[in-house]
Design a protein around this nucleic acid. Structure first.
Lengths: 237, 237
DNA sequence: CCTTCGCTGCGAACAGTGTTCGTTGACGAA
DNA sequence: TTCGTCAACGAACACTGTTCGCAGCGAAGG
């Protein structure tokens, strides 16, 4: 019996602190680190457990299934979103959407986890209150404000997820810088459009530059502004 | 050797047509049927291959990996979207967004496959041309029209995906009708909001009805109209 | 003090996944 | 007839999430 017994190992840990102690928060932190470095699909019960020098079964004392662990990772990330502030409702909304997107972008493809979940928890309620209050104070009708929060959240998450995937598309291939590959891809895309028959595709062939212009940030900023304009159009005067 | 050799089996097939013949289109059709009945995650190389009475290795003669098969399923589905028509650009856009969402909804969670892909192919170009031409004819600036198509497509896909997941949330539990479970869930949600302290959460507690009102269709229709209003606000006059 | 209970921890195994390897057999060209 | 090509595929590999059942411990009960 060369292997140390569990109790011996635990004793060693207590004194030399060779590995982190198991626990809900520690597990979430390890999983989040995996997300940050390799993406959501790299989160594996085995890999997370390996960080604690143990097997996957140990994690099931803290989470009923993997989904619960990933959901905990998401709430942990959403906690990084500050309660929004702003001069007027437009400023408030714009800043909140941009910072939320930034938080998602900091953690690779976590945004994918937000689909199909109804976020709860105190911090999220605080954010919702600040947004709703700001919109109402700006004269936005309550029904418009309520649904706009919904639509806006969906748009931000979708854009963050899409942006990550687009970025991945351009660095899976070789070791070259992703933005260089991206530029090349869009140049080829533009050429393909220009090669279309103008008689059948007058609109596309006539506006290739506009169709391929702007990076992800530009397009997101445009979408946010358009979203705000859509709300503003529904303020009675 | 009781097992029949491949040649014998093929001969039987040729005469009695016991199973469909292997081929790109046939494989896509089988995969799509799996998506329609059980969702994307039910598509397994083994399950698809089983429909042809063979093992997963046989599929790799037609698709380099599973992702390519799923991508083919997506393009097959996108082909169901008609080239958009409409009286004016608002009508054109609104109808196109609704029918696109309907097509996604017909095929469970296919919408998830559309994230991170830049759709190409003749049919898609036709759709883009019709949309762009309609917007330009309505006086929408080219740059606005180009980006709006991008943002709109993302929003439709995200809503379709989210809508599917929300629906799934309410019928995983028991055998009861999903909409009944959903109503119950939102009633509980509303009660939780009403139980919040009004002093700290005046906006939320004061507008619970608006926050929980409307089903998925209502919210999507609202989002589309707001999107159109956002474009309209950028037409120079 | 001894026994029993419940709990964290976890090794082993199960059923399933995508993908690869190496072989088979049929068919058209030489 | 012989050769080369290629679709087809059985078997296996390395991996996944999850469950089972068994240790070992601390607290509770007699």
């Amino acid at each position: 019996m060369a292997r140390t017994s569990p109790s011996e190992r635990r004793a060693v840990v207590a004194t030399r602190r060779r590995r982190p102690t198991l626990g809900v928060e520690a597990i979430v932190e390890v999983a989040l680190r995996l997300v940050d470095t390799e993406g959501v699909e790299a989160v594996t019960m085995r890999r997370v457990a390996a960080e604690f020098d143990t097997g996957p079964a140990s994690l099931y004392a803290y989470f009923p299934h993997k989904e619960a662990l990933l959901s905990a990772v998401l709430t942990r990330v959403l906690e990084e979103i500050p309660v929004p502030r702003g001069d007027d409702w437009q400023d408030l909304l714009r800043r909140h959407m941009h910072t939320t997107r930034d938080v998602f972008a900091r953690h690779r493809d976590v945004a994918r986890l937000s689909f199909g979940t109804v976020p709860t928890g105190e911090h999220f309620v605080d954010i919702a209150e600040a947004l709703l209050a700001g919109l109402l104070a700006g004269g936005v009708p309550a029904q418009v404000a309520a649904w706009a929060m919904d639509v806006g959240a969906l748009y931000v998450a979708a854009d963050a997820f899409e942006g990550y995937l687009q970025g991945q598309m351009f660095d899976d291939g070789s070791g070259r810088p992703p933005e260089e590959v991206g530029m090349e891809f869009y140049a080829g895309f533009a050429d393909a459009m220009r090669a279309l028959p103008p008689s059948r595709y007058p609109a596309i062939t006539g506006h290739v530059d506009e169709l391929v212009s702007g990076d992800g940030d530009d397009r997101f900023g445009f979408g946010v502004d358009m979203f705000i304009a859509g709300i503003a159009a529904q303020i009675p005067r």
